[in-house]
Design a binder for these strands. Structure first.
Lengths: 210, 210
DNA sequence: TGACTTATGGCACTAAAGTATAACGACAGG
DNA sequence: CCTGTCGTTATACTTTAGTGCCATAAGTCA
């Protein structure tokens, strides 16, 4: 069973490689630390399974998986995440990855997850499963697609007028959406909504993260 | 040279342990994945050097270091960070840690960093150094203490009236501060300021981070 | 002392944000 | 077909937010 690892943390690559050395049925045939290298190795070594970090510096691990499926159609993809970023989980699960493991997991869990995926099953870390079930339904789920667009714009620091022109609607419409959003989120003003949205990944990070 | 590792990612622990195995002068004498365990091991094994993840699930790595210095006064502390979180860097550097390495670093860099710290020097990852130097002087530095208080309040989603009553001043004063803040930060409204401040750690996280 | 910064309070004014209510077309589900 | 939701526009209104200008008091620094 050929494995490829894509992560920008050499320590993690080293860690996975080490624990895989003792498994007769699993072999790491390549590692990469960025998007370019990752796609190259996927194309070259045609692995059975690829373990991909969700947040590579700058780029998103999901993009690699989406593009990776083209160059290595037979490959099953497992996402490796830091657990703290719950915002990404939902987006990832929508992309139908074959597995989702946390860096907090023990080596035994990781190995059994890989074997499970190798046999065609899907593995989702129990902690994530739990957080998806127990999670008091995120009020953000009640927002319509359009409202999500508006909220993202708010979380980018835009005014109603700017949002209106960027969405090609009138300011009235934007105000309507904003009121609706604040109502659904049970918040007092756009600033609270912006902070809320920003804390779970919406908005243009560029402006506020140097 | 005795090493202790504190990180909630088993893969990272495995990775560091592995690369240290081939260094005759360095030996990992204990690992921990949380604050409690970490302090216990520090007290028991009295290591020469401890490598501590900056963001342990829930708790902050800095707290461990602060408390760790009590139970293991001779120990030198190296922070291990994910690089993406520049907000924490400044706070960490203020605490006078002996080293600061990134998970993006190669095993060779990490080893040489450990050796450097072992000899009493301080090691800061070049990338961090660069970001501290090149960084266009953070406009937040220009704010007065009082303005910082107000900004933190804004980043907690408070209105001018709420801020006024919480700081025991009138709304006029708060408005004055807000204007001043927006002027210094060169931003258009409180929402932008809130996002900016929030992204570098100010504000009450409680309200917006589930 | 004089110049400067910080923190404070006040007023008037403009601009923006948010609410309430109403209406219309499109579209999906029962 | 009817009902409900979504996205849209609109009017009218209230409330915050933010700016400009002024003024006072305390503390710092040369």
């Amino acid at each position: 069973m050929k494995l490829v690892l894509i992560d920008d943390h050499p320590l993690v690559l080293q860690g996975i490689s080490t624990i895989m050395q003792y498994q007769d049925d699993l072999e790491v045939v390549g590692t990469a630390c960025c998007s370019r290298e990752g796609l190259k190795i996927l194309a070259e070594s045609k692995p059975d399974i690829a373990i991909v970090d969700l947040r590579l510096s700058g780029e998103n691990g999901l993009d690699i998986i989406l593009r990776g499926r083209n160059v290595a159609p037979e490959c099953r993809f497992i996402i490796l995440s830091s657990g703290s970023d719950r915002a990404d989980v939902r987006r990832a699960l929508n992309e139908k990855v074959e597995g989702y493991i946390l860096k907090e997991a023990t080596p035994e869990e990781i190995i059994s997850a890989v074997r499970l995926v190798a046999r065609g099953r899907t593995y989702i870390d129990p902690l994530i499963m739990q957080s998806l079930v127990c999670e008091e339904k995120d009020p953000i789920e009640e927002l319509t697609p359009r409202e999500l667009e508006v909220l993202a714009a708010i979380a980018s620091g835009m005014s109603n007028r700017e949002i209106a022109s960027s969405l090609f609607v009138t300011e009235y419409t934007v105000k309507k959406h904003v009121s609706q959003i604040l109502d659904k989120l049970n918040m007092a003003d756009r600033t609270q909504a912006a902070l809320y949205a920003f804390s779970r990944g919406l908005g243009q990070v560029s402006a506020f993260c140097s």
